[in-house]
């Protein structure tokens, strides 16, 4: 039983990171309808920038964070401006856009491998050593993940609910035609969605360098998780995506209570497939229906 609770705790910390990735993806997908597979490339680029800045260039953490945010923001906006916008203008099919995004992802992942090699990197920090809480242990980094995730999601909620730009983004998600009719510039709001979504990658990327280490292949996994969380949570709902991330993180950990940990990935995606088959509208709508 202790083990089960400990695994759930681990899952919660991991799920908090997943939630950040998922909400960023869901925000972009919801408002622009672009299936931004390269979101995981943003993650890998941001994480490696931070790692290189701290470990190889020896820069102070605050400066490294700024650099990392700049890279994430730059990559997200470049994708929007140079790949998706021309394709939207020429009215490409959504699958065509997806394939272009997939291509970007493959290119970015391998560019990182060319520079840093394909093996793991981790950063040492006092904060990654576990705190003992009675029979349980959780690392300060894991706690940071949970706190950061809650704070950022709260801030996003405020932005979407209380600002004019936020309201326009919500309108774009609900009714893109209406937005065009009242004369809002949809490319401007797409840019905002990509900027906010890509910036949300930064805390997830930095914390995961400390929490579980870094490898270029982690991008594929994190993208899949972000997409899966969005679907498990319910497309169109940011709360749903966050909840989906936490559910997947916990499922991946608790699922291996009695199994070898190598089953974790399979279990997380088993959950996803079950949702796709039986609840394609996601968790949020399960609750709403009640």
């Amino acid at each position: 039983m202790e083990l089960l609770i400990q695994l759930a705790l681990n899952g919660l910390a991991l799920g908090a990171l997943y939630a950040l990735m998922a909400v960023g993806f869901a925000l972009i997908f919801g408002t622009t309808k672009i299936f931004h597979f390269a979101h995981g490339a943003t993650f890998v680029l941001a994480a490696y920038t931070y790692y290189a800045a701290v470990s190889e260039a020896g820069l102070p953490v605050a400066f490294a964070l700024g650099l990392c945010a700049a890279v994430a923001l730059g990559f997200g906006l470049a994708c929007e401006r140079f790949v998706y916008r021309p394709m939207l203008r020429s009215e490409s099919a959504s699958l065509t856009i997806f394939v272009a995004s997939f291509g970007l992802f493959i290119a970015a992942e391998n560019a990182v491998i060319l520079v840093f090699g394909s093996s793991y990197h981790t950063l040492e920090s006092r904060l990654s050593r576990a705190l003992q809480l009675g029979p349980f242990a959780i690392s300060p980094v894991g706690l940071c993940a949970i706190v950061a995730s809650a704070t950022i999601l709260g801030a996003l909620e405020f932005f979407l609910a209380r600002t004019y730009t936020g309201a326009a983004l919500r309108a774009m998600a609900d009714n893109p035609e209406l937005v065009r009719m009242i004369g809002l510039n949809r490319y401007y709001y797409a840019k905002v969605a990509f900027a906010v979504g890509s910036l949300m990658v930064v805390p997830a990327a930095v914390l995961s360098v400390y929490l579980s280490g870094l490898s270029p292949q982690s991008g594929a996994w994190i993208t899949l998780v972000a997409i899966a969380s969005t679907i498990v949570g319910g497309v169109g709902s940011l709360y749903g995506a966050a909840l989906g991330g936490i559910v997947l993180g916990v499922a991946q950990n608790v699922g291996i209570w009695r199994l070898p940990a190598s089953w974790g990935e399979g279990i997380a995606f088993g959950v996803l497939l079950l949702f796709l088959l039986f609840r394609p509208t996601g968790l949020i709508h399960v609750f709403e229906r009640r």
Partner: peptide, 11 residues
Amino acid sequence: SISPTASDFQA
């Protein structure tokens, strides 16, 4: 047991 490619061993 762990997988040869695993890099996260918190579980």
